[in-house]
Design a protein around this nucleic acid. Structure first.
Length: 869
RNA sequence: GGGCGUUUAGCUCAGUUGGCUAGAGCAUCUCCCUUACAAGGAGAGGGUCGGGGGUUCGAGUCCCUCAACGCCCACCA
């Protein structure tokens, strides 16, 4: 940060323009290290930003440009306030999107069974192959080869992203980047996991999980979404074992009849009260199940009594757990009915029925069982079609099933009231911008219904640093995990060998096996503060940057990214990971739909930057208030571009008044009432902008600055022009020029966070160093220069000149048409103020005579007869 | 079903403890080549502030209620 220092020689271009600013100043900032983090600064002199790592599995869209600009304006403001800004960039190249992209891009398929092939060459991308070869089936490659390909492709994508962000003018320190799949991130993720495990926060459990049958992968609560799907109620009779009396239930999942473990009704339901504790026989399979009572059973729904299956939905899981029912699962991991006849089905009819369903996909199985039930007369009436919400993996295509499997979990308060309360309290320690976003956090924390499932049955991700001993039969001893040592991280248990074993012990009886799963992508993303600040590896950096100042992010991932980051920081550091959360809204298309790739309504940011310039695009982005969804509007970009051009021209005027040799005037030469009045208002503006920025409201700072600036151009510059053109020996001219220099310098710095390119360009005409390292305008300096400046003088001068212009315009005369007589009547206070600036008003309105009087407000204008005076 | 947010000019939006006649830009119309800027400038027209009710001397602003839209959450048999 530095005090503005005018250069000895100025160079104000004859015809300034916006062309090429991005590449010229981008290169300058890179060469001179303008945005380099100064790590000699202590924590209280640092502003550290937990930049969201964009997913590197496609292309950047306007939404990125939008929200990253918001953060950048804050970063630039803090830098000008003298903070050393810690502004790293991460790339999220870990996880399913990358896997999918690599599969399609190179035409490969990961097969974890295959051995690593060190000679495997990077394939020609599918799109670049001859047509006839494009449809070939994917080549199967080992996990390690697959990961290598992921690294190759993401490295290329990251270059493109960086270039775009540079063109946009993000003041990121590009020497500090990380990728969520790189060794550093994997090490952090594994170290954090090991510590969670050591403290008992990470644990394994064999439990029902939501399962995507296409990905063959477990899915966490945070990754769910509901979709409205057609379904149908099927009415089935269960017969009491004693009397054979039928009890009717309704179900949308008849294919799960074989997984039925009980019926359940509300404890107060008079219809079923007499039957609690009795058993009934399932139709078709003839399995005996008990009738139980539970408050969650809703007497209003269906027939008021439900069949509990393991597992049809999450309510089944609750009933199963709380009523301690047996597990009878019938669906296998690939989403088909299991082939073997379940051991609890013993009747001949039941076995025959099962064989009709075995191996069928869920939908086919449903059709088949409906047929069987119809044939046996056990389907009452026709199925009643309904639509109902069904849980899907947000990236999945088929409804989730609930299967039982062994998975890793991380405690997050979902089954622990105290931890939940602690995390809820953490949410209240954080400053939310805008504040109402905290509600979403509260909603989420209070609605958790289980711990965080962190294991995924995928390949491209961070492995669990864990192996298991195998017993004499070759079965893993899950209760005796072998943990990696922290010093050996990162490890890949599929490749690395635990201490005390050799590779020949892998997957043989009495040997070991690696944990096959990878971590949820959020298990890494939740550690971005630790990753960026060098936790556990660079204690010095960590002490200067953590806890961080701000997490900027979008609102729809409060439940995932923000919450999970909070969990990790709370568990590991017993603190909030940042002091502020700055939540950005979405970019909506003109139909007010969220812009997204799948809807095909995405505009590529590059052509916007080329058409309007980075400053103009940033102007549009920064005009949106924090947290507000905003319509995509190229019109706003045009206005931003105009603003940038206006800045060039107004600056040229203010800086060219001294003639050939530049003269730097002193604030003390500002003696004219109009100049002081303007500066008085300018001081007010700086104060407002500062308060707005301190409250993370960049949009307000921009709006105020812009409004001031246009008025400054249209009124002040016109009023001051005649006086400013007088010779340098005129005190009024010197006052005007000093005032112009001070106000221009101030305005440029106020605009610098928003329009970094054009302000840097203008700054370079007459100031040493980068404007982005210049100190934020000093209110007390402005107040001192403004001295007795009276805002009324500025206001009334403005009004009188406007009235004069109106008279000329209405008379269809040019603005340089002279005025013979200008008569202003107003209150004594305003007349007194006007008298202090009367000459400027007279000159600006080209009035040959001006008179004032106290009375009712009016401005009388008599135009001259002749335009040529 | 619960919660949060939004609703102000044709369009995009300001309007911060309630306070003079509700603002800006774009768009529309009129005028002006003026030595910073015609990629400009000066003006004009355009709004019962989503509906209804209330508090108040005074409501775009506070309270109640309804509606539309968006989002988040929910145990969806």
């Amino acid at each position: 940060m530095s005090t503005p220092t005018p250069r000895a020689a100025w160079s104000v271009p004859e015809k300034p323009d916006l062309g090429g600013l991005e590449s010229r100043w981008g290169a300058f900032w890179e060469e001179s290290g303008t945005y380099q983090f100064d790590r000699s600064k202590n924590r209280d002199e640092v502003f550290s930003i937990d930049t969201p790592p964009p997913t590197v599995s496609g292309s950047l869209h306007v939404g990125h440009v939008f929200s990253y600009t918001h953060t950048d304006t804050l970063a630039r403001y803090q830098r000008m306030r003298g903070k050393s800004v810690f502004y790293p960039m991460g790339w999220d190249d870990n996880g399913l999107p990358t896997e999918r992209r690599v599969q399609n891009y190179y035409g490969v398929q990961c097969d974890p069974q295959l051995p690593y092939d060190p000679n495997f060459a990077v394939p020609v991308p599918v799109a670049e192959r001859p047509k006839e070869e494009q449809k070939k089936p994917p080549v199967h490659i080992s996990r390690r080869n697959f990961i290598e390909l992921c690294n190759v492709l993401t490295a290329e994508d990251e270059k493109v992203f960086e270039q775009l962000f540079r063109t946009l003018g993000l003041s990121v320190d590009w020497s500090m980047t990380y990728a969520t799949i790189d060794d550093h991130c994997r090490r952090v993720a594994q170290r954090a996991f090991l510590r969670n495990f050591a403290r008992g926060e990470a644990y394994q459990a064999e439990a029902p999980v939501l399962w995507d049958v296409d990905f063959k992968c477990a899915v966490a609560q945070a990754e769910l979404e509901d979709r409205e799907m057609p379904g149908a109620y099927h009415r089935l009779p269960f017969r009491l074992s004693t009397t054979g009396e039928p009890i009717h239930i309704e179900t949308t999942r008849p294919e799960l009849l074989g997984a039925c473990v009980a019926l359940v009704a509300h404890p107060d339901d008079e219809r079923y009260k007499p039957h609690f504790g009795k058993t009934v026989v399932t139709p078709l399979f003839g399995v005996e199940v008990e009738i139980r009572a539970h408050e969650l059973a809703d007497p209003e729904k269906g027939s008021g009594i439900a069949m509990i299956c393991t597992f049809g939905d999450l309510t089944d899981v609750i009933w199963w757990r709380e009523l301690q029912l047996p597990t009878r699962s019938v669906i296998s991991e690939d989403g088909r009915m299991q082939r073997e006849v379940p051991e609890w089905i013993t009747s001949d009819n039941g076995i025959a029925a099962w064989n009709d369903l075995a191996g069928k996909k869920i939908k086919q199985a449903q059709e088949a069982i409906v047929k069987l039930l119809q044939d046996s007369g056990e389907l009452i009436g026709d199925p009643k079609a309904i639509t109902h919400p069904v849980k899907f993996f947000e990236k999945g295509d088929r409804p989730l099933e609930i299967l039982t499997s062994r998975q890793w979990y991380l405690r997050n308060g979902g089954r622990d009231q105290q931890l939940r309360q602690e995390l809820s309290d953490r949410g209240h320690q954080l400053h939310w911008h805008p504040p109402h976003m905290r509600v979403r956090y509260d909603n989420w924390v209070n609605g958790l219904n289980g711990d965080w499932l962190v294991s995924r049955q995928r390949f491209f991700g961070v492995s669990f640093p864990v192996w298991y001993r195998l017993d004499a039969e070759g079965n893993p001893l899950y209760d005796q995990p072998i943990l990696a040592e922290e010093s050996s991280l990162p490890v890949d248990p599929a490749v690395d060998v635990p201490t005390g074993f050799t590779e020949s012990d892998r997957d043989v009886p009495n040997g070991f096996t690696g944990d096959p799963d990878v971590m949820d992508t959020w298990a890494t993303s939740s550690l971005t503060p630790q990753i960026a600040t060098g936790w556990g590896e660079d204690d010095d950096l960590f002490s200067r940057t953590f806890p961080m100042d701000v997490r900027p992010q979008a609102h729809e991932i409060i439940r995932t990214w923000l919450f999970s980051t909070m969990v990790r920081s709370h568990l590991e550091h017993n603190t909030i990971p940042w002091r502020n959360a700055s939540i950005s809204g979405w970019v909506l298309d003109p139909d007010r739909k969220k812009m997204s790739k799948s809807k095909g309504n995405v505009v590529t940011p590059l052509h916007l930057l080329e058409n309007y310039g980075a400053d103009a695009v940033r102007y549009w982005a920064a005009s949106a208030r924090p947290g507000t969804d905003t319509a995509f509007d190229e019109g706003q970009m045009k206005i931003g571009r105009r603003l940038a051009i206006k800045l060039l021209n107004a600056s040229r005027f203010a800086l060219n008044l001294g003639g050939e040799t530049p003269v730097v005037y002193n604030d003390s030469e500002i003696t004219s009432a109009l100049d002081r009045a303007m500066l008085h208002e300018l001081a007010q503006l700086v104060e407002e902008a500062t308060i707005a920025f301190d409250g993370y409201d960049y949009a307000r700072a921009l709006e105020r600055t812009e409004a001031f600036f246009w008025r400054y151009c249209d009124q002040y510059l016109e009023l001051v022009k005649a006086r400013a053109y007088l010779g340098d020996d005129d005190a009024g001219a010197r006052s005007a020029r000093a005032s112009l220099q001070l106000s221009l310098s101030t305005l440029l710095r106020l605009f610098a966070p928003f329009l970094p390119f054009v302000t840097e360009e203008i700054w370079s005409w007459w100031q040493e160093g980068s404007i982005h390292k210049a100190e934020w305008p000093d209110i007390s300096q402005l107040r001192q220069a403004a001295d007795d400046g009276n805002p009324i003088a500025y206001a009334i001068a403005d009004e009188v000149v406007t009235a004069a212009r109106r008279a000329k315009t209405e008379a269809k005369r040019s603005l340089k048409w002279p005025i013979a007589q200008l008569t202003v009547t107003d209150s004594s206070e305003r007349i007194a103020a006007l008298e202090t600036v009367l000459n400027d008003v007279k000159d600006a309105s080209l009035a040959s005579s001006i008179s004032v009087a106290v009375g009712d407000t009016s401005v009388a204008v008599v135009l001259a007869d002749d335009g040529a005076v």
